[in-house]
Amino acid sequence: MSLSQAPTPRPQTIVVKIGTSSLTVANNQLALSVLARLVETLSQLQRQGNRVILVSSGAVGVGCARLGLRERPKTIEQKQAIAAVGQGRLMRVYDDLFTVLDQPIAQVLLTRSDLMQRSRYVNSYHTFQQLFNLNVIPIVNENDTVAVDELKFGDNDTLSALVASLVGADWLFLLTDVDRLYSADPRANPNAEPITWVQHLADLDIDVGDRGSAWGTGGMITKLEAARIATGAGIRMAITNGQSPNNILRILAGEPLGTQFAPQPNPSNARKRWIANGLRPSGRLYLDAGAVQAITKDGKSLLSAGIIKVEGDFQSQDAVVLCDRSGQEVARGLVNYNHHELQQIRGRRSGQISMILGYDGADTVVHRDNLVLNPDAIGPDMKPLADIG
């Protein structure tokens, strides 16, 4: 087959996150050369027929630079005000650079509540699909101006993974201030060993530290959490140096750059991804060994008889974490009873529920259709029965 007859690669959905440390130089001034290379790379991907989303940090840092501030704000009120200043300037720079290449963009600001409520989650999905249809690159950031602590993503690593899961992306790229993941923080430990490939997150035993840059919020811990969300959704993820955005093209071409994470072979469907990652659990249910076996190995729903302890203040249809006796998470799901009711029926057979509560309730505490297993609880080679269908 000649080169002219070679098949065109399948278009992919690609989410790229760039951190504050890669976007800025001294005194939080924008690193325009990095931004220009990033814009050129993303526009090239878009011209190739791919669907591209950029998750961009930097609003607070750019706002601080605009206002002449030397320290990152401490209070949420200060962050919200300064983010409002910086977000507009950041988007103006992006729009100027993308306009040179005739690539339209859109600003999408999200809070955690946009992904927690099912109707807003679905609406967000449809918005992204329409932007793809219009050949637009969405530029996503957390809506810092209105978000409060309990509705914040915490960092854009998590946000980018949730967006990638929402749209069913093929790839998630985290552009950061290191070239790959290491066995320890290379800034503090000169003996840190590079890690190029991660097949299973559970196999990692590394010291990731807990710090980001002076102006960013995400360290390696947040990147591993992003990897958990992304790979669990069947998305391949890569960590690479943000100073060289063209590494994205090289990785897509098959070069072993950065640290790459293998997607899980049996990803959950869209609704279960929402349950696992979009919702914040309001409580914990501790299960006996029989219940753990039933939901992780046999693909069954959770019954009241298998619950030995209830923690938290939650209502029916809230998300809860399901744990074994030791507190190890084995699954998450939507619960059919509130915490008061579960305290009364835990350890009891389903046939006793109506007598205890005085009315007919659901036979299951968490139905298998509303239950998502933790991949580490079932092992990498076992198909999660609760996710079938």
Rank of each mutant, 00 (worst) to 15 (best):
I295E: 03
R66V: 08
I195D: 03
D381C: 03
S124T: 15
I137C: 08
S57D: 11
I195G: 02
P384R: 01
D288R: 07
V372D: 00
P375T: 04
V208E: 14
L175T: 01
G351Q: 15
Q103W: 08
R180M: 04
V163W: 03
S282Y: 03
N241L: 15
Q78M: 13
Q243E: 14
I53F: 13
R349F: 10
A377Q: 01
T259M: 06
L385N: 07
V321L: 08
V85M: 02
I53D: 12
S183Q: 03
P9Y: 06
I195N: 02
L166V: 04
V320R: 02
D313E: 15
I388F: 10
W215K: 08
D149V: 11
E150C: 05
V330G: 01
P190D: 00
T222Q: 06
M116L: 09
R368E: 09
G254Y: 09
N247D: 13
Q129L: 14
T176H: 09
D298G: 07
L69R: 06
S2C: 12
Y359G: 10
L342I: 00
A253N: 14
A294I: 07
I248Q: 06
Q117W: 10
V372S: 04
T231I: 07
I105N: 01
P186A: 03
T41C: 12
S268D: 13
R228H: 15
R280Y: 01
F153T: 04
T99N: 13
S326G: 08
R120Y: 01
D288E: 11
K17W: 07
S2V: 11
W197S: 11
P256L: 05
Q293P: 07
G290S: 11
R325N: 13
E329V: 00
L54W: 05
L151T: 14
S33F: 05
I307F: 02
D95G: 06
A192M: 00
L134G: 07
S316Q: 15
E311L: 01
L357V: 13
N370L: 02
F261W: 08
D376W: 10
R92F: 02
N374A: 05
A106C: 13
G168F: 05
G358P: 12
E193C: 04
K297I: 13
L115Q: 08
R280I: 10
R89E: 15
R112W: 06
Q243M: 11
P194N: 04
A188W: 04
V198F: 12
V25I: 13
A36C: 08
R284G: 01
G154W: 04
S21P: 08
Y286D: 06
L159N: 03
M91G: 01
P281G: 01
R280V: 06
E142Y: 04
A377T: 07
V292I: 13
A238F: 12
R66G: 01
M382I: 14
L204F: 07
A319E: 05
H339P: 03
P256V: 00
G333D: 03
D95K: 11
T231R: 01
I139V: 09
S119V: 12
A202D: 15
Q103S: 12
P380Q: 02
K74H: 14
S21V: 06
K297A: 15
N374M: 00
V60I: 15
F153V: 05
E71T: 12
R70V: 15
N241S: 15
G290N: 09
